[in-house]
Design a binder for these strands. Sequence first.
DNA 1: CGGCCGCA
DNA 2: TGCGGCCGG
Length: 353
Amino acid sequence: MGVDLSELVEDIKRELSFGELKGKKISIDAYNALYQFLAAIRQPDGTPLMDSQGRVTSHLNGIFYRTISILEEGVIPVYVFDGKPPEQKSEELERRRKIKEEAEKKLDQLKKEGSTEARELKKYSQMSIRLTNEMAGESKKLLELMGIPTIQAPSEGEAEAAYVNSLGLTWATGSQDYDSLLFGATRLVRNLTITGKRKLPKKDVYVEIRPELIELSDLLKKLGITREQLIDIAILIGTDYDPDGVKGIGIKTAYRIIKKYGKIENAVEKGEIPKQKITFNVEEIRSLFLNPKVEKPNTDLELKDCDEKGIEELLIKQHDFSEERVKNAIERLKKAKREAKGAERQKGLDQWF
DNA sequence: CGGCCGCA
DNA sequence: TGCGGCCGG
């Protein structure tokens, strides 16, 4: 699930109000967002929302209503969809697939036994969440009907989101994962697709979740390293391309080593890291972050009018959404888009006056 | 997760 | 009018 850099960003991350995001475009990793909706939009026993034919609809529910809320805050989302993952990720994807399969078996077993243990049922439902190509495709279709810009990445969505951001086409990337920083995003906004209050596990305490901003330049300055070196730290603790990293090296040690030796190869040469502990091709993985497969988007990333009939057909007719709620939401969508476009124009004018 | 209703 | 809880699909 991406590289955990939370300990490194602790001092430079900054909470944002939505006001600061008004009129700004954010390239959002669509898979990351969809996955969160699938995980969060569930009944107490872990069952996701489904239509009358038993097809999961939690992702559509989340994408539809959450995107409208984001727009109402003046943020213009650009959703970036994954293409074909690089070969070096296949081992990790296979590992995740196996874990899900096991969880599915366990869940079936519990259900067959007639278990009413909500906690257990929820745990294994969460673990067996699958985001299929069909679900992603339908979400993309819905966004297009809503007139929200989407990008099809040639490979990793996170890399493409970072690329369009580095081109200046968006103000920041949006994801819960830190990987876009490794891919060269100038800014990362977390907690964009989860907000409001969240219950702490096992406690009756609610915490406010707010968007938070991490600027790559601030992070590198604070740590006194380059992006290449940040990538080396990530490789040592483990990325999607080398999930185990180097056994025994955590984030603090990784930072210390890279600060002292500059790069992984030097640390190995000086005997700081035993050579046999590097079980992957460092140069190759580093290159996946430095030169990922990306391309310039062939659309203008602007908000378009929405296809109301199309949205109604997809959500109401095909997936049993409530007609009243959907029509209501479409009105909010149209209003929010008019205002968001206005805010973006205003932002453009601010540069001149 | 968000919408929406009931309740103070 | 703001918050808590239940339902949505």
